[in-house]
Design a protein around this nucleic acid. Structure first.
Lengths: 341, 341
DNA sequence: CTGAAAGCGCTTACAG
DNA sequence: CTGAAAGCGCTTACAG
């Protein structure tokens, strides 16, 4: 009889359930159940197991667990970009909330490309994620089918939908767009342009809110919509600003995102345009820098951190098979009035 | 005899090696070897297996693979922030390169906190990553020991070191800081301030380059170093700019990062300071927006995308156990001269 | 409430 | 070059 535990040739040297079981004087399966918090384990044994696991420094093997249970502790997150602070804030909130519950986040950056999204999702699904967070509702039929067929719990972020069976956390992009436009109207503007890039679903929903406000005020003019499909950037904002002012002579411009609006404000002195005297400017998302520029930028503060937290919480409930109170959480935004309009 | 394959109660319904083996008329282990590209498999069989796998749409189970081989296809990456474009660019390059070779990236954001880094690393190591990428060399002794003990191949990014056994991809922060300071000297500046935040190792290495240049020119003055430990931001740059100009009356300011410098440029009109007439300004990293501001910002273009790619390639070699040519790759940066100095 | 057996889908180590 | 057996470290499904 020797104290040394004989290990097979292939042992990883890692502590296993069996080591803990031996230390606690129970069977491995009881350790498994106790550690996972399954009820129907004698509280006394649970305590003994917990103590032994802690003392030995036992850490369950995620691969073995995933193989045996057919579910991992990975959560796949699909977002369009990492270069927009919006999504970084969202992501950090998701990651912080999920980490605290033992889940890892696998990030997929789609670059607003439906084919890239589909490819990323396929790769992520191979890892049998326990949950999925995707941005908005706009995607290829194939991607939608993959999500459905995978039966992986899924939460949509940024937009809202009341469709049955859909889980989402976001806010009404349309209402926010409308409110910002109404702010510009209230400041006396009548020829209000909408300047947008990327043209993803959310940008177009803001456009819809813009139209609604202007139609209600009787001053909607389709010629004042400037829609560019390329990615949003400071440079594009600067370029669009110069052109729109020269061509359309608006008294206000609603840029669909702060980066475009910031680019416009940076270019204004060079173009010899005074904001808001010559033209008022507003952005969307209230990104870093908008409060620093001269003039400071009027924008819409969007609840991305809250969206990330709520979405993670909702997903945790879904992954645990718990009943959830609301399948669609709508969060609040606010218009931030500054010097530019 | 029935065509339906009888599956056990616990089958995941997933295609397995055995399905492919049956289709190809070989044993499962041969399929495993063929698909992993192990030599010592008859090329004819390899072809037959490949064809069968492709036809059936077989995808190996990462969990089973990880459990059996004691190594996953995860690569853990530790970076300080996601809110600095610098690290996003780095990360995207890493992710793109590794994905192409079948590896997944697990991102850990340390927020420049050694304790958070250690905690994240512990969590990541539980997943037995196949490789590790960490930022710089500054970390707790515990974290260093964890990396060492894990025996997971590790590449350090952003900085360089010739220490034996260390793998790194980066550039000389000190040389770059020196070159930018020399540029300011060449433009006639003598009272050159160094304005820094966060004060991580790289920021201090740039400071060292700044000192070297000024000492060589005989105009180093410690009173012109303004070091703030809090995180870098536009607002802090604006605040520091006003104070430094008022207190020290420098003829140039070298901000350790573009976000500080951009904040300064945004605040300049409000403060009634004309750049570069009253004071020249330079930044570091050439972030988005630096070419758009008025005046446009002189900066140092840093090779973060290249660092990401090279680091991923180096790590791939290490993970495959291949011999690597250089364990320290030093990449080129360049001073970008614009209107601000 | 507890446990022995079987299995998750791969790879390793050993034979031949 | 190929394969049968055993094993990676867990959890499921079945008994009791």
């Amino acid at each position: 009889m020797t104290d040394a535990i004989r290990r097979s040739r292939r042992s990883s040297g890692r502590l296993t359930l069996e080591d803990v079981a031996r230390a606690a004087g129970v069977s491995p399966i009881t350790v498994s159940r106790a550690l996972r918090g399954e009820r129907s384990v004698d509280p006394v044994l649970v305590e003994r197991v917990r103590e032994a696991a802690a003392r030995l420094g036992y850490v369950p093997d995620p691969a073995a667990r995933a193989l045996a249970s057919q579910r991992s502790t990975h959560v796949a997150v699909l977002i369009p970009l990492l270069t927009n602070t919006l999504f970084v804030d969202l992501l950090e909130a998701v990651q912080r909330t999920l980490r605290a519950q033992g889940f890892q986040t696998l990030i997929g950056v789609t670059h607003y490309d439906p084919r890239e999204e589909e490819q990323l999702l396929r790769e992520q699904l191979m890892h049998r994620p326990a949950g999925l967070i995707v941005t908005g509702f706009e995607r290829s039929e194939e991607t939608r089918a993959l999500i459905q067929a995978s039966r992986v719990p899924c939460v949509h972020v940024m937009e809202t939908s009341r469709a049955p069976g859909v889980h989402c956390v976001g806010f009404s992009q349309q209402d926010a767009g409308q409110a910002l436009t109404e702010h510009l109207l209230a400041r006396g503007a009548r020829r209000i342009a909408y300047a947008a890039a990327q043209l993803d679903a959310r940008v177009m929903q803001r456009a819809e809110g813009y139209r609604r406000a202007l139609q209600a005020a009787g001053c909607y003019d389709p010629a004042l919509e400037f829609l560019r499909p390329e990615p949003s950037s400071f440079a594009l904002g600067a370029q669009m600003f110069g052109r729109i002012v020269a061509e359309a002579k608006p008294d206000a411009i609603f840029f669909c995102n702060d980066d475009l609006a910031q680019g416009a404000l940076m270019a204004a002195p060079r173009l010899g345009i005074s904001v808001p005297r010559d033209v008022a400017v507003a952005g969307f998302n209230d990104l870093p820098g908008s409060d620093q520029l001269l003039p400071s930028l009027t924008s819409v503060r969007t609840p991305r951190r809250e969206i990330g937290e709520e979405a993670a919480h909702m997903l945790l409930q879904l992954m645990r098979g718990e009943a959830i109170s609301t399948s669609c959480v709508e969060l609040a935004w606010s218009v931030v009035t500054r010097e530019s309009s």
